[in-house]
Each structure stands twice: as structure tokens, then as C-alpha cells.
Amino acid sequence: MLPVLDEEIARHRIARRVAMEFQDGDVVNLGIGIPTLVSDYIPGDIRVIFQTENGVVGAGPKPDKEDLRFIGAGGRCLKPILGGALVASDMSFGLIRGGHLDATVLGALEVDQEGNIANWWIPGKMVPGMGGAMDLVTGAKHVIVATTHCTKKGDPKILPRCTLPLTGVGVVSLVVTEYCVLRMVSGELVLEEIAPGVDLEDFKKVTPADYRVSRDLCNMKGCDQE
């Protein structure tokens, strides 16, 4: 049996680990949900520029006094950082598609061993639209998937092949869940880190995708800070 984690602990574990991926000066777009939490865990010795689809380069935290003229893509108020920039949508997506983003962090319904991601539509349910997700996974240098390992129903999300309509093909570079870090290396998923208390055989049962266990497999970084 895999350790059962409190949902909040799981979400923050994922966010804390993702935040370790960045380098000083990286430009990063954070999606809604777990990815939003990542900004709370940026190490103090580096500066990361957060970009939002609706036109902020250098998004800062929620201001003390609400001003609806400055919002993020999810509609929450924010303050642009000093030295930030406000741009229109064509520039915003030019930055995204044009390779000017070091990373995008998004949630996923499914990812697979080919680096495909599905995160915008479950046929038969409502059709929300892809928003900026297809552009983000196409243009960002690193596509980091931050997701719980399984769905709320307990179904695996990391599959041999996505079954849902894709957002992007062969674009994923890293998958971080509450149980592991899986990195795409030369077209193959490599298990680099595993959370404490997770048995590899149990892990395999909830991870139907093909993956290679790294010779340098180690404990998932950041778990010791919980």
C-alpha cells in the first residue's frame, strides 16, 4: 500500500519540489491549482519572473488593497513587481509561443510515457476550452506537470498512452507528484526521486507507464522539510 497523504500535504509537497527546478532569472508561467502554490516556495537566493497569460511579466503577490485593474489569469488580484511589465495578449502569447519562457507548470488529467499531456477536456463532460494551455505546452522550454499521482477516484494518471484529447504532443519534460519525480530523458521517463515510505512495487501498480528507475534514485527532495 502506498502511504495515504493528507491532500494539503500532498499539494504542498509537489509545489515545494517543483520550485527547486528553477534557476535565477527564469521566466515561469504557473497554471491554476497546485502550480499556483509553487511561487510560495521559490528559494530566497534566486529571483524568478512570473508571467501570466493575460499580460503580466513579473507578477507579484496579492496586494493588501484589492485593485481589480491588476489581475492574474485566474482572476485573482495581484501586484506587478517593481521592474515588471504589462503587455497585451499578442505580446503575452508571443512570449509564450516564441520560446521566451523557461518553464510552464501545469496540472494534468493524464500524461504518458511519450511526453504527451491531456489537461483540457473530458469528452462527454462540459467543454471549458483550452485557454492558453496548448500555446504554453508548445512554447515553453520546460513543461513541468504538477499533479497528484492518481485521480480523486484513484485511477492512475501516468499512463502508457493518454486516452483523453491531447493538449500537446511529446512536450512534457518533468512530472512531479506527491510520490515521485519522473523526468523525460532522451524520450524515456526516468524515475529519479521517490517519496519516503513508497515501495517501488506498490508504486509500479499505480504507474502503468513504462519508466526506467534511475541508478541514482534518491528520496524526493523537500520531503524532509514537511
Binding site: T52, N54, G55, V56, D67, R69, F70, I71, G72, L86, V87, A88, S89, D90, S92
Partner: peptide, 12 residues
């Protein structure tokens, strides 16, 4: 001229 994040798709 525009202000804040109200610019978005308006200029296009």
C-alpha cells in the same frame, strides 16, 4: 492608452 491588465485583447 491602457491600464493594468485591462489591455489584453483590446489593442488587437
Amino acid at each position: 492608452v491602457y491600464f493594468g491588465t485591462n489591455r489584453n485583447f483590446n489593442p488587437a
